[in-house]
Design a protein around this nucleic acid. Sequence first.
DNA 1: GTATTATTGAAAATGGTCTCCATTTACAAT
DNA 2: ATTGTAAATGGAGACCATTTTCAATAATAC
Lengths: 156, 156
Amino acid sequence: MPRRERRGQGWLQGKFKGCGYRITSGREAILDVLSKSDKHLSAEDIYMQVHPKCPNVGLTTVYRTLDVLAGVGLIFKFDFGDGRARFELAQGPKGAHHHHHLICNNCKRIIDYTDFIDEEVELLNQTEKGLTKKYDFKITNHLIQFYGLCSDCVKK
Amino acid sequence: MPRRERRGQGWLQGKFKGCGYRITSGREAILDVLSKSDKHLSAEDIYMQVHPKCPNVGLTTVYRTLDVLAGVGLIFKFDFGDGRARFELAQGPKGAHHHHHLICNNCKRIIDYTDFIDEEVELLNQTEKGLTKKYDFKITNHLIQFYGLCSDCVKK
DNA sequence: GTATTATTGAAAATGGTCTCCATTTACAAT
DNA sequence: ATTGTAAATGGAGACCATTTTCAATAATAC
């Protein structure tokens, strides 16, 4: 059988242990759900997926684990304005899979986009550099979201 | 006495009425607080400031008014991760006062910055244009936040 | 004025998230 | 393998920002 997932899992778990946290079955299951999904999962979404496999993992643990993971930087926490937090893997030591969001104000649909125009990356770096210098602020991360109307809603 | 605020207020109220909403004393007071503050106010902050002047304005009305104002685009609603929404005037028909945020992960301090480097504005425009075309998405607004450590917290 | 309709406040409901604490578990040292 | 200990757990309930409900009131159109 292929060991396809071994690497990713290994890395996640390694990073996790490296930070002094213990690997438990619940945490493993949560990491597993996160790493297999490309959606923006809420705590309850994750709980719903984990629970069938590990009925002994409670919602509280999901929240706690997500908090730890976000603190370590392994996942990102988003707010899309629907009253619940959303989570996704930061994915990869090299920042692969990084993306921004388009959010439809009408139907609340969320579109991920990863295909930055070349200058966008360049400019972001410059902006970060400028801000770091000007405000003496060490930037570790950023959030960029565009709001408006998606193609479906713009027609109405 | 100067009528400095007359214009802004007039514009706000005009826009408000133009959308079919009634002008009430409570709404006036809320608009007043918003237009005189340069902070990121929570619903309760606003309530606390409005209540002394208009004891008959309840928290419910503050929430409802903020919702209407945000819907019309007169104010922006932010989430800085502290569990309560923050509001501020979109300020002006020409988008003046627009700014982005630096958020300290440690002390939660929030720094506004308005002094975009020229390229940043340019890039945003290009990015918006590109996204609009590619995803057929009508962009009306954006949110940009940088996370990290402020000068005080970086020392520790 | 009067009718019409939006707006209101108070109280209660909602719902996501966190706290508490007795119990269980991971894991390093034996 | 066994054990000691601190970390991790989950279930119930607390918490608290935000919404809903509904009867009373106020703003506009006529």
